[in-house]
Amino acid sequence: MSLKSYPPLFALALFCQPLTGEDLLSTGQEQFQTHCSACHQPDQMLVGPSMIEIAGLYREDLPGFLKWCNEPGKKRPNAVEMPAMSHVGDENLKAVHAYLLKATEGKKEKAVPKGKKYDFYPSIATRPIVQRFFMPDSSPASIAVALPGGNDDLNFCYDTAQCRLRYVWKNPDFLVGWYYWQSNGNAKVNLKGEVIYREEEPPFTVSGTEQESEPKFLGYTLDSSGIPTFRYQWNGATIAERIVVSPDGDSLERHFKTESANKLEPAPNDQNTVQSTQADELVIDLKW
């Protein structure tokens, strides 16, 4: 079926015009909403770069834009890989390009601290954060916690195999998770911050029992502000443990509650001092 032998189709081709003006922009907006907006926000990086950044990169380079959309490469090692958009079609992608340029005219990218830009991921963005990962210097079953308070830069690693605090590190941006997340788990996260305290054993012992047993993790609950309480069994006692930043911001308050008849005997040292011992709760101040 050739064009010559099919005059009606040939005429059709003549009547087909590429989109212009308002049609182009409204198609572009519609296509962008459907295919792109889940990962590309106007003025900040989410899963992918912002609309402003993309417009800047491809303003003079429509062919490059089309090529990238149809066959995305991998420029940003930490980012979630972009799926191919070849199903959208080049005419629609041209409309998206036009829409991007128009929609970002005169706009500025939101200021983001240097180094944080590509590490943004919603579930580890706002304190408090409670997230399991493969953590350095801890068992494979560990939980990373970022606490609010003080300078909003205190984080700790809780080991659910040993049921205890392993270390505290300082990083206002928590840690870099994509090392672990980007692939199949063949990496640990990167703390990108100074470890300011390491603990070899808990700051208490369990009294009133002959029982010695391996610690057994029971899980955690979150209070209304998202702070975790870890529960575990150890040497016959059931213990609930909660760590928060002290009101003055320069130490951590460690709350240990027993839910059984045993008492917790504090074992203080230079960094861990007893703040209070009530019937079932031991509060220890940790200053590094």
């Binding site: 005429a11 059709l12 009547f15 087909c16 015009q17 590429p18 989109l19 049609d23 198609t27 079609g89 005419e91 629609n92």
Partner: peptide, 9 residues
Amino acid sequence: PYSIRMKTL
């Protein structure tokens, strides 16, 4: 993907 005049379509 193209705007097409309906009467010919």
